[in-house]
């Protein structure tokens, strides 16, 4: 079976490589992808039509904005699928043990049968387990870094139509910053900042922002995602409306992507209980 699989792979790979000989030369300006009106049109007209310097972003969020909306919907679906498949309720023991750490010495105390210490305690902090120690250096450095990471992520989102970047990348970086928080501290810390419901709302709000912009275009008399239709509403020229529409859309993407990243990590690391994780 394995040999068959390898043989099939080799056969297919060989065929694909063989056909490469039939391709137009790499970078040949006369080859169809470069010569055909599509690429030419994008290179020559993007700035006039959308006032967006980054052609990639313009194609992504405007010319083929519909694809991108569905890519975002894919992300949304992934989060929803993880929720649907992984989320569990009622599997936790009725009274879990709580582990507290003495902040000064690092000694761990396990309180059985759900007993707790005061959350306001300055000397003891609740931790997820005694295996993963609370590390002062890591947590402090991460706490220092995370705001900068998030700032950078916002920059990537907002500056997407001028420089490389956009909603996807920015959203992922934003999500990654929260994952860093979860890893450097523990899941509980993240959970307190971002309850599941809020994340879910954020997730949906992002994609609704995207499709809502598209739908609003329809309501204002354009086709779906025809940003020009929103020009009068926003008080800008149609070309400028494209640029602004792209910005809105990118923000929506970023929200959804960020929420998805956090949610998936949460569900995986807490085994679906959304309680205590790695």
């Amino acid at each position: 079976m394995k040999i068959l699989a390898i043989a099939l792979c080799l056969l297919l790979g060989g065929a694909l490589v063989f056909v490469v000989g039939d391709f137009p030369d790499w970078g040949d300006p006369m080859s169809p992808p470069n010569d055909y009106r599509l690429s030419k049109h994008f290179i020559e007209n993007t700035m006039e039509e959308t006032s967006v310097p980054n052609i990639v972003t313009a194609v992504l969020a405007d010319y083929r904005g519909f694809d991108t909306m569905f890519e975002t919907a894919v992300i949304f679906t992934a989060a929803l699928a993880c929720f649907f498949l992984l989320r569990t309720w009622g599997r936790r023991p009725s009274k879990p043990d709580n582990v507290y750490m003495h902040l000064l010495t690092g000694v761990h105390v396990r309180l059985k049968h759900g007993k707790t210490l005061s959350p306001q305690s300055r000397t003891f902090a609740r931790v997820e387990s005694e295996i993963l120690r609370y590390d002062l250096v890591t947590s402090t450095v991460c706490r220092l870094m995370i705001p900068f990471i998030q700032l950078f992520a916002l920059y990537v989102v907002a500056h997407g139509h001028h420089s490389p970047g956009g909603g996807f990348q920015g959203g992922v970086i934003l999500g990654a910053s929260f994952l860093l928080l979860a890893i450097s501290h523990d899941l509980r810390t993240l959970r307190e900042r971002f309850p599941e419901v809020k994340l879910m709302y954020l997730l949906i709000a992002g994609i609704v922002l995207y499709s809502g912009v598209g739908f609003a275009c329809m309501i204002y008399g354009g086709n779906f995602l025809e940003y020009e239709a929103l020009g009068p509403l926003m008080g800008v020229t149609p070309v400028m409306a494209h640029s602004l529409g792209i910005l809105f859309v990118e923000i929506g993407v970023a929200m959804t992507v960020m929420a998805t990243m956090i949610l998936i990590y949460n569900y995986i690391s807490s085994l679906g209980t959304y309680e205590r994780g790695l």
């Binding site: 990639v56 990537v156 490389p164 970047g165 956009g166 990348q169 992922v172 970086i173």
Partner: peptide, 8 residues
């Protein structure tokens, strides 16, 4: 852009 996405 693609490189950026791939990296993140």
């Amino acid at each position: 852009d693609v490189a950026f996405t791939e990296a993140s």
